[in-house]
Amino acid sequence: MVGGAFGALVARDLRLALRQRGDALTVVLFFVLTAALFPFGLGPEPNLLARIAPGIVWVTALLAVLLSLERLFLADYEDGTLELLAQAPLPLEAVVLAKVLAHWLTSGLPVLAAAPLIGLLYGLPAEGYGVLLAAMALGTPSLSLIGAIGAAVALGARRGGVLVPLLVLPLYVPVLIFGVSAIDTRLQGFEGDASLLLLGAILAAALPLAAFAAAAALRQAVE
């Protein structure tokens, strides 16, 4: 019963995102465009660009995910859907996770798919691509999860759009650090780096934390 409701909710959010197909596309365009701006500011020197590529990919991915966070709960909050979901036969924690999953599929996953393109533009060495994808596969869901907390607590706030980044960005620091260092250490020729494991650990911790904290915030929002 809960499983079916969970699936129905994810399917509905995906359907909404696909019908308003601008959303996912905007995120990817923002990602690619922002990443393409850095060489204009830094100069086209290939060695420099190759060295900073992991950092650029992660920072821009983080900003792109941030851009789409506001719409995570806001529309449902404004039109009353959230009140109905709060009374649905599945726990609000599961509602949060379903919406986060749909959010990741329409923001984190497209960004992940576009990341090798940025690597290419920056001349990332060939051995970096595998670990880049692995790190982003582990890290971007955490971005959606942590972001869900920020989006949920800021529901109904004035200037919510500016507020969410202020709340969320400091909490993104660990993901950024380990995401970059996973790629960096691989490029320096080390094998078996712990960064990927730590990214996985952060994801494992963020799952319950985001579910509980965001659900608590949503309950307050519909009070």
Binding site: G4, A5, L16, A75, E78, G80, L84
Partner: peptide
């Protein structure tokens, strides 16, 4: 419960909307 908000999503048809809530219920 029916509150002030109608919770109608612009892209979803009437039948799709009802089917979604029916599946939850």
């Amino acid at each position: 419960y029916l509150g002030h908000g109608e919770a109608v999503k612009p892209p979803l048809t009437v039948a799709e909307d009802l089917r979604f809530w029916a599946s939850l219920r």
